[in-house]
């Protein structure tokens, strides 16, 4: 999983590199465009295009029937039932390409989340750093957070025994890429922090190793297996994307753009959707 994340992360970061300093919507538009084309290709290759075309024709026929026989209630009901039945068939036929697409799409979305889901820390803005211990790890005798030049730890640790958590407030003093160091009973673990607002991957949490953790949080290498820590978390502020003046979550913008582009290009790719 680490290898998959590294390859995919490298690809997405490389693809977005030229757009990193432009408004986020620009890069997202490019990604949506590529995704739409990929979806069309997969859809064409994995779906039964003839059956889909036939089912769509049947749905249209049903709609025509309703219009033609609008004074015949029985016929209208029969046509509506037919339309419903054909719709279910259409959904079943679409399911196959969806199954093909869902895994790669999930991997891509996970990567994009770390590019578009969070804003970088602005200098002067405070943020929390939380270190959570494994459920079976002993309470630490000594736990401290060390910030590099350009960042500052503003408070002592709050140690919360019931949560097995230590929390600090930190502030970025200058833009840059930093590593915070967490010292736990003589061992040191790091957590990456990025304070520029460019479109670059940001990892809000560094987790213990595990397939699901790696699948959902691919932007940063996991903690060592014997660390005794469950996570090191840094609460980046969430980013919203402006889509024609409408501020929305990037995922909403991504899906709207991908679907609109896919529909616009379906004839060029000779795909029946």
């Amino acid at each position: 999983m680490t290898l998959v994340n590294a390859v995919l992360g490298g690809l997405v970061t490389g693809l977005l590199y030229p757009f990193r300093t432009l408004p986020p919507i620009v890069g997202l538009l490019v990604v949506s465009f590529i995704t739409a084309i990929a979806m069309l290709v997969v859809f064409r290759a994995t779906s039964n295009q003839e059956r889909i075309a036939a089912v769509k024709r049947s749905i249209h026929a049903g709609l025509f029937e309703i219009r033609l026989f609008n004074d015949d209630l029985r016929q209208i009901l029969r046509s509506q039932i037919d339309i419903l039945r054909h719709n279910l068939t259409y959904l079943r036929l679409s399911l196959v390409p969806m199954v093909w697409m869902i895994v790669p799409l999930l991997l891509v979305v996970a990567q994009l989340q770390f590019h578009y889901g969070y804003r970088g820390l602005e200098p002067g803005r405070t943020v929390l750093v939380k270190v959570r211990l494994d459920a079976d790890a002993a309470a630490p005798r000594d736990i401290t957070l060390e910030a590099p030049v350009g960042m500052r730890v503003e408070t002592p640790a709050v140690w919360i025994p019931t949560l097995r958590e230590a929390a600090w407030r930190v502030v970025a003093e200058a833009p840059g890429d930093y590593d915070l160091s967490v010292h736990v009973d003589g061992r040191t673990f790091t957590k990456a922090v990025r304070t520029s607002d460019a479109v670059i991957p940001r990892s809000p949490v560094k987790l213990a190793p595990g397939f699901v953790n790696q699948l959902l949080y691919p932007a940063e290498a996991p903690l060592p297996a014997d660390s005794g820590l469950a996570s090191i978390e840094l609460t980046y502020p969430e980013r919203e994307i402006s889509l024609l003046g409408w501020e929305t979550h990037w995922l909403v913008a991504f899906f709207i753009l991908s679907i609109v582009i896919a529909f616009a290009l379906r004839n060029r790719f000779s795909v029946v959707l």
């Binding site: 408070t155 002592p156 140690w159």
Partner: peptide, 11 residues
Amino acid sequence: LYLDPEREVAK
């Protein structure tokens, strides 16, 4: 409010 009286800090 989680209190840490020793360090006079809270979350």
